[in-house]
């Protein structure tokens, strides 16, 4: 899954840096070269990347919760196995992204600490609840669909470890997206109760999914610099439009209605016109006021605190064994 662009209004602070180094760096990036961990990079680039990659990793981890909520209630053995595998993939993505972010000099423990203290953000989408089985379909179809839209360009992002992580992650995400759509397809072709469940899930997840692309371009102050640095390759609004254009026909194909009165095909633009996203809601969710934001953080904090004795034991055991090995030599 994916992290929302929540860059807000804070510009990275200026640090005095060697102009020749900066120019050489900018030239490499403009030339679509990969920047590797040992290469020189501007401090602001490093900070922006750590923030973006750790937000992405946190989103994978917190994203395990809404779907994990249905593992024990999956409706049949096949769906249970698929969902387990999917949530496991997300844990893998988180691990992979934390490792990639660690190459920039911030440890996984520091990043985890930032998440649990509320300092670091994660995608707003995971602060919405999964109420019915159809939500598992809707998340795969819409949320992973939006994630792919965001992540495919990141396979060519300028930071090498991030780009390589994205290649692998994108493969799995597109699989998840198809599985989610397949759940929706099945429900939409099912009993009246199942159709109702599917439509209700689309109604609830549609707008939060559009919010995943982040604030409108004119309210996204870091976009320009991030695009110049190839940390970002398309603007929020462009990606949002692309998502709407691809997803609306998918909804129609299975007989579901996108919950937007203003949705209309615009022949001239060759794209859908669509209604206004409720940005007030978006900013509120970013600030931690999502419907289940407290529950999500509570679950992460509890897992971390309850697991402390296990992590301590593993560390102490490893030290004991290392000492014993040393003594034997």
């Amino acid at each position: 899954m994916y992290t929302t662009d929540m860059s807000g209004s804070k510009k990275a602070e200026a640090v005095a840096e060697d102009p020749a180094k900066v120019a050489a760096f900018e030239a490499r990036v403009a030339n679509d070269e990969f920047i590797e961990p040992k290469d020189w990079m501007p401090e602001a680039y490093r900070k922006t990347l750590v923030r973006q990659m750790s937000q992405h990793a946190h989103s994978e981890i917190v994203g395990m919760l809404p779907e994990g909520n249905w593992i024990t209630r999956a409706p049949n053995l096949r769906r249970k196995a698929i969902l387990l595998a999917k949530v496991q993939d997300e844990a893998g993505h988180g691990l992979y992204l934390y490792s990639a972010a660690e190459t920039l000099g911030t440890s996984r423990d520091e990043m985890t600490e930032a998440l649990l203290s509320g300092k670091a953000k994660y995608s707003t989408i995971f602060n919405y609840p999964t109420l019915t089985w159809a939500d598992i379909g809707a998340i795969g179809w819409l949320v992973d669909g939006a994630a792919i839209m965001n992540q495919v360009p990141l396979q060519r992002t300028s930071y090498g470890p991030y780009a390589r992580a994205m290649v692998r992650i994108c493969k799995e995400e597109s699989f998840h997206q198809r599985q989610g759509y397949e759940i929706m397809m099945h429900l939409a072709a099912g009993t009246d109760a199942q159709k109702r469940m599917a439509q209700d899930a689309l109604n609830r997840w549609w707008w939060p999914s559009l919010m995943m692309f982040g604030p409108p371009d004119d309210k996204s102050p870091n976009t320009e610099q991030s695009m110049r640095w190839r940390i970002k390759r398309d603007t929020n609004d462009d990606l949002r439009q692309k998502f709407v254009d691809i997803t609306v026909p998918q909804a129609e194909a299975i007989g579901l209605t996108v919950p937007d009165d203003k949705l209309k095909w615009n022949e001239e633009r060759g794209a859908y016109d669509f209604g206004d996203v409720d940005w007030e809601e978006f900013y509120a969710v970013v600030k931690g006021e999502g419907p289940v934001a407290k529950e999500r953080m509570q679950a992460r904090v509890k897992a971390w605190e309850d697991g402390a004795w296990v992590r301590d034991a593993a560390r102490v055991h490893a030290e004991k064994r290392a000492a014993a090995k040393l003594a034997a030599e």
């Binding site: 387990l84 496991q88 844990a91 296990v310």
Partner: peptide, 16 residues
């Protein structure tokens, strides 16, 4: 039932 609640990410992966 453990999924998403394990003591460490690696443990989550192995239990799943």
């Amino acid at each position: 039932e453990w999924c998403g609640h394990a003591p460490a990410l690696e443990v989550d992966l192995s239990l799943a």
